[in-house]
């Protein structure tokens, strides 16, 4: 009996020491990644956050602590709040359009047809191109004087004179939404396509035998099946679009007349045109808080799956 107890204790002790060993090993392999994260992400992030409480312009040799003044300025500055609204329009518009087109494209790529693999590969092209290159391609295509879009519209008689897409509020917003959508479609399509792979095809066949139309199949079978993918994709898409900077900057620079000045452009303008790092950081904090609910939702979805 005694010997059995000793053996149990010994086994439990070994298990504990194994677990402790595992933990130590896990910690060891985490250290390089954690160190890199702390240095490259966490420290700059916290530094930028703290800068929001300082006045630090080109005229200040050292930052001056001013408490919540930058945040008070944001609340009384109509342009910053206007940027928040512009951001919301861009994010919602881009995410919605990308999801619709991405889903449609995924459904198309889900079908069996000759050359499907080639098409799927070609679809990834916008994703592979650097986003700034894509932005410049679209800027040239939409150019009010030399752009191919205008040439096609004029040539086909749809318009009588060139449309200045990027010089008009609505045109500029549509241009950035369109460009961002074009770049994001491959990613969204991949998510939806992956989701579709898990769909039991017999369900669709059974529905068809019962006389279901294509639309009914999509509405009653495919969309409910893809619901979890939809939610995660929407969260990811919104996070990505909220962070968007390079395409907008390269295409419109935030203009005309601030009509495409989203929060990221506002931060850039404050930091590198008005030379006000404190205000830029404060807007950055607002930006982070805008992102936070989506990030929390996305992370919770991930952990739930685990």
């Amino acid at each position: 009996m005694v010997s059995t107890q000793n053996t149990d204790k010994h086994t439990t002790g070994r298990r504990r020491s194994l677990k402790a060993g595992d933990r130590r090993f896990a910690l060891m392999i985490l250290i390089p990644a954690m160190t890199a994260f702390l240095i490259m992400v966490f420290y700059p992030f916290m530094d930028a956050m703290s800068m929001a409480f300082y006045q630090f312009t080109i005229y200040d040799l050292e930052p001056i602590f001013i408490g919540f003044s930058n945040f008070q300025s944001i609340l009384t500055n109509p342009y910053v709040l206007e940027s928040w609204v512009t951001t919301a329009i861009f994010v919602v518009g881009t995410t919605a359009l990308t999801m619709c087109v991405g889903l449609a494209w995924a459904l198309l790529m889900y079908q069996n047809f000759f050359g499907r693999s080639v098409f799927r590969t070609l679809t990834l092209l916008p994703w592979i191109l650097p986003s700034t290159v894509s932005a410049f391609i679209w800027a040239w295509m939409l150019n009010g004087k030399y752009g191919i879009v205008n040439a096609l519209l004029l040539g086909s008689g749809v318009v009588d004179e060139n449309i200045q897409f990027l010089s008009d509020d609505l045109g500029a917003m549509m241009a950035i939404i369109l460009t961002r959508t074009w770049i994001s479609i491959p990613l969204f399509m991949s998510f939806f396509l992956a989701g579709l792979q898990g769909l039991d095809f017999q369900q669709i066949e059974a529905a068809r035998l019962d006389g279901a139309s294509n639309w009914v199949v999509v509405r009653r079978i495919i969309l409910p099946h893809l619901r979890p993918v939809f939610l995660v994709t929407a969260a990811l898409g919104m996070i990505g679009n909220l962070q968007q900077f390079d395409i907008i900057y390269a295409l419109t620079g935030g203009g005309p007349i601030r009509s495409t000045t989203v929060l990221s452009i506002e931060v850039y303008t404050q930091a590198f045109q008005n030379w006000d790092l404190g205000m830029a950081s404060a807007i950055g904090v607002l930006w982070v808080f805008t992102l936070m609910p989506l990030v929390v939702y996305y992370l919770r979805s991930l952990f739930k799956e685990d």
Partner: peptide, 14 residues
């Protein structure tokens, strides 16, 4: 920005 945006607002007819 103050002047540029107002000039643009006029030439764009806003």
């Amino acid at each position: 920005a103050a002047v540029g945006e107002e000039v643009q607002a006029v030439i764009l007819g806003q």
